Simulated scan of single mutants.
Amino acid sequence: MADHNDLLNRIEKNYMKLSKGQKRIADFILQNYDKVAFMTASTLGDSTGVSESTVVRFANALGYDGYPKLQKGLQESIKTKLTTVQRFELSKELEKESSYTKKVMNADMDNIRRTLDGIDEGVMEQIVEDIHNARRVYILGMRSSSVLANYLGFYLNFILKDVVVVNAGALDVFDHLINITKDDLLITISFPRYAKRTFEIVDFANAQGATIVGITDSPMAPLVSMVKHVLFARYNMNTFIDSLVAPMSLINALIQSVSIKEMDRVEENFEKLENIWNEYKIYNPK
């Protein structure tokens, strides 16, 4: 996949061969590549005073199989580089478009479909087996990924004997892992902008011999080379809000798969819990 540097190199190499309109597009991209990554061909054409077809021919002139290929490569390369301020500016541009609500929700549905298409069932089965065999399961997610980590930990706590969600609080994150061993498993959730502390913790857990499972967005994510198994969930960041819908859906699938593996324990645990909930009136009566 083409990246930002590759795009700049292509522009430089082919600039003198471009038409007048295509050169206007090239100049605009060089100055505004962070915005162009999330512009449609039509919007880019409007911004540069050329037709949509000229934008498509520009992408072809640089060797891309259509404008979407150029745009995807650019998006992939800059998603960890955009600041929150830049992302907020992008969201303001998107709000100018019609049907903004539908646009966001359709993008989430597309991310789920693309995540499903990329699922490796064999890897999922191996992860479930490793979770089943682990003495203790640790779950790590920093920054916005902490939402996913807490959700996963909430439900795995009903299924497994020993689950620890690694949170930054009174205890430092390393304090949670003081007793991690080769018999334990760490599920690490990491999405852009990738939190640096995540990789320090994974390094520590690897040094203790623990099994590491990763949940991230791309084969190019820095977590991939550090883990035994990895699951990928599609992720867009074309607003200042991290879209975690597809990762949440993937985590739901993982929870269900683990619960099936631990069916007898789950049934026993929920029978105990229902008695406790009734005794202490945890929920409102019907």
Score class of each variant (00 low, 15 high):
residue 3 D to A: 03
residue 17 K to V: 00
residue 18 L to C: 00
residue 24 R to T: 01
residue 27 D to Y: 05
residue 34 D to V: 12
residue 35 K to H: 06
residue 35 K to A: 09
residue 60 N to W: 01
residue 83 T to A: 08
residue 84 T to A: 10
residue 95 E to L: 15
residue 96 K to E: 09
residue 96 K to V: 06
residue 97 E to A: 09
residue 100 Y to A: 12
residue 106 N to C: 08
residue 107 A to L: 15
residue 109 M to C: 14
residue 113 R to K: 13
residue 115 T to G: 10
residue 118 G to L: 12
residue 119 I to T: 14
residue 122 G to A: 10
residue 122 G to L: 10
residue 124 M to V: 15
residue 146 S to V: 09
residue 147 V to N: 09
residue 148 L to A: 02
residue 150 N to Q: 13
residue 153 G to L: 07
residue 159 I to M: 06
residue 160 L to F: 04
residue 163 V to Q: 05
residue 165 V to M: 10
residue 166 V to T: 05
residue 172 D to C: 07
residue 178 I to A: 14
residue 184 D to Q: 03
residue 187 I to S: 01
residue 188 T to L: 07
residue 190 S to Q: 00
residue 190 S to L: 02
residue 193 R to E: 10
residue 198 T to V: 09
residue 208 Q to A: 08
residue 209 G to R: 03
residue 211 T to F: 07
residue 212 I to G: 06
residue 213 V to H: 00
residue 214 G to M: 02
residue 216 T to W: 06
residue 219 P to F: 03
residue 220 M to T: 13
residue 225 S to T: 03
residue 231 L to P: 01
residue 235 Y to I: 08
residue 235 Y to Q: 08
residue 238 N to L: 11
residue 243 S to A: 12
residue 244 L to H: 11
residue 247 P to H: 11
residue 259 S to E: 14
residue 262 E to T: 07
residue 263 M to W: 10
residue 267 E to K: 15
residue 270 F to L: 15
residue 274 E to L: 13
residue 277 W to V: 11
residue 278 N to L: 12
residue 281 K to V: 14
